[in-house]
Write a protein that binds this DNA or RNA. Structure first.
Lengths: 126, 126
DNA sequence: GTACACTGTGGACCATGGTCCACAGTCAAG
DNA sequence: CTTGACTGTGGACCATGGTCCACAGTGTAC
């Protein structure tokens, strides 16, 4: 598929896709026919775009995602190196999860307090 | 406490604190003695700074955090309005949690695959 | 072959969230 | 009363992650 259809498939903008390609996050084939330089995307690229967006929402930078995506595509790193890289990402996610749980618990208790007529003291951050 | 001690207490930089104050995220008293304009921070501000950093790591923008922080300080919104605001944040967190769980599961299975000698096909993103 | 949609490129521009710097006032210690 | 640490201000600068634009080539339909 060409860029427009890829944009529809992924929800990304044309310029965002160009930006990701420039960063090496997406690696479409180039030249749908000899003579042009149209980028040609396949399903693997669509899947990769989804991975990028997910990781991004989790607070990973495009730089980090580049490493993760390269791994995802079986980049030339050693098996141990790749596993170590993934464990780093995992640790990052687990830290995030803990903080998220904390903030979530705070929000839940605060909502309960607000809706319960504000009895007692307002809950504080743990 | 003055800004330097506040920075030590929160791990923020001087300029970052100034930046947050400008944005209204932190609201120190001004004037430790008549004649100066030194910002005076208390424990509530330290706690607030922690809330800001946590929320920020979870992907909230400073703009959103401003609203949350105002709520935290019992800003002048109605009880229903405040509860609604908090539920929005909660929903945002829950979406994030789901995506996080997905990516986490992918990472775990991929690590297992790498460490198990790469038997079978590489796990795909769910 | 002309029109029109689609594609490419390079570069300018933008918002966010800081970070750095020069310069000036404040204040406690000696 | 000077020195040095600390504070304030305004403004320049930076990285990240886009977004917009003008201009030019491509491809298809008429």
């Amino acid at each position: 598929m060409l860029i427009q259809e890829f944009c529809r498939a992924t929800g990304l903008g044309r310029d965002t896709v160009r930006f990701y390609v420039k960063r090496g996050l997406l690696t479409p084939a180039v030249g749908s026919s000899p003579g042009n330089r149209y980028r040609v995307f396949d399903e693997a690229q669509v899947e990769r775009a989804r991975l990028i967006r997910t990781a991004q929402r989790l607070g990973f930078t495009l730089r980090q995602i580049g490493a993760l995506a390269a791994e995802y595509e079986h980049g030339g790193v050693s098996r141990e190196g790749r596993a170590r890289l993934l464990r780093q990402h995992l640790a990052q996610i687990d830290v995030l999860a803990e903080q998220m749980a904390t903030l979530r618990a705070y929000l839940v208790s605060k909502i309960g307090w607000l809706e319960g007529g504000e009895n007692g003291p307002p809950p504080g951050l743990p």
